[in-house]
């Protein structure tokens, strides 16, 4: 396992952003971590990068426990993990040229002097599809898609074992998004890195993830192989999420059964007792309000779900029992 997260908890003051989350990512695997705003999905990414210190739990990167490493002790391990950010505008230092930005990791890990770095930077830029003359440009001279390519080049230049990508394409227009998504899949195949792909967009996850984990209020409610999750979602929340995302086909879209969830996502300051989803779940019954379902795999198919209604011989359907 390249990444193992065990019962991770991260509280910001009163806010229980991540509240007991476990997941793992194997060699060369792409895990899509899906959730809506406030689900805590970005916090998971920050903990893995150790941009923040987890409150409790454990994070192992390629077998090494990094949960509470100091900044200094963490530094050499940063060769193995990097990040691609959502905002192509704020994630590049406006005062650096593209060559400087992409060459920074080489410099900090003593891999190359500024002069030697040039060759590797040029090769990396070519790999992400940027023309050589981009090297001397500044971020503000690039389009959003080009900037995101620079972010990818920076994240990949040390050939890390794990890349955390936090909504890397959600700020981009569809046509630009398509080319960046293609690029990510190509690079992933060529370089073989593992990837924690954080997003709210199910169609993106379906496109590139091997496995999917769905988060709700700081916890994983369901995870499994991508095809299985999309074909047979078991948790009522996953079902609602899938049914709510409109498909770009008016005939199909208008005939779909949709599960419209009532109410809003509760505050992570004071999450509901019992199952955290019970306040919005169309199927909730008494047990859901009092006891919290564990993430278990009653059907033993590598597809665990945290729902009282999922048993070895029953899968709930949120669209029917209303």
């Amino acid at each position: 396992m390249i990444l193992e997260i065990d019962n991770l908890v991260k509280h910001y003051g009163q806010v229980r952003a991540v509240d007991g989350l476990s997941l793992s990512i194997g060699q060369g695997e792409v895990l899509g971590l899906v959730g809506e705003s406030g689900s805590g999905k970005s916090t998971v990414g920050k903990c893995v990068l150790r941009l923040t210190e987890p409150t409790s739990g454990g994070i192992r990167l390629d077998g090494r426990d990094i949960t509470h490493l100091s900044r200094r002790a963490m530094r050499p391990l940063r060769r193995d993990v990097h990040m691609v950010f959502q905002d192509p505008y704020s994630s590049l230092n406006p005062r650096f040229t593209i060559e400087q930005i992409v060459g920074e990791p080489l410099l900090h890990h003593g891999i190359a002097s500024r002069r030697e770095a040039g060759g590797r930077v040029a090769a990396m830029l070519e790999q992400v599809g940027l023309r050589p003359e981009m090297r001397s440009r500044f971020p503000h001279e690039l389009s959003g898609g080009q900037r995101q390519r620079v972010g990818l080049a920076r994240a990949l230049i040390l050939e890390p074992k794990l890349v955390v990508a936090d909504e890397p394409v959600s700020a981009l227009d569809v046509s630009v998004q398509a080319s960046v998504l293609n690029l990510i899949t190509d690079l992933q195949r060529e370089m073989g890195f593992s990837c924690l792909f954080i997003t709210h967009d199910l169609s993106v996850v379906e496109f590139l993830a091997d496995r999917v984990a769905v988060m709700y209020l700081g916890k994983i409610v369901e995870s499994g192989p991508t095809a299985q999750i999309f074909a047979e979602p078991r948790h009522p929340y996953t079902q609602a999420l899938l049914s709510a995302a409109p498909v770009a086909d008016p005939v199909r879209q208008r005939e779909r059964r949709r599960i419209v969830l009532g109410g809003d996502v509760p505050s992570p300051v004071d999450p509901p007792a019992g199952c955290r989803f019970h306040t919005r779940c169309p199927l909730a019954y008494d047990a859901c309000r009092t006891s919290e379902p564990a993430l278990t795999d009653p059907r033993t198919s590598g597809h665990p779900v945290a729902c009282h209604l999922v048993t070895a011989d029953h899968v709930p359907d949120a669209a029917v029992n209303r």
Partner: peptide, 17 residues
């Protein structure tokens, strides 16, 4: 709070840098 600072940390940059 800007992402480019987070990116610099991820690059392995020292605080001084």
């Amino acid at each position: 709070e800007m992402d480019y600072v987070a990116a610099a940390i991820a690059d392995g940059a020292t605080d001084r840098h």
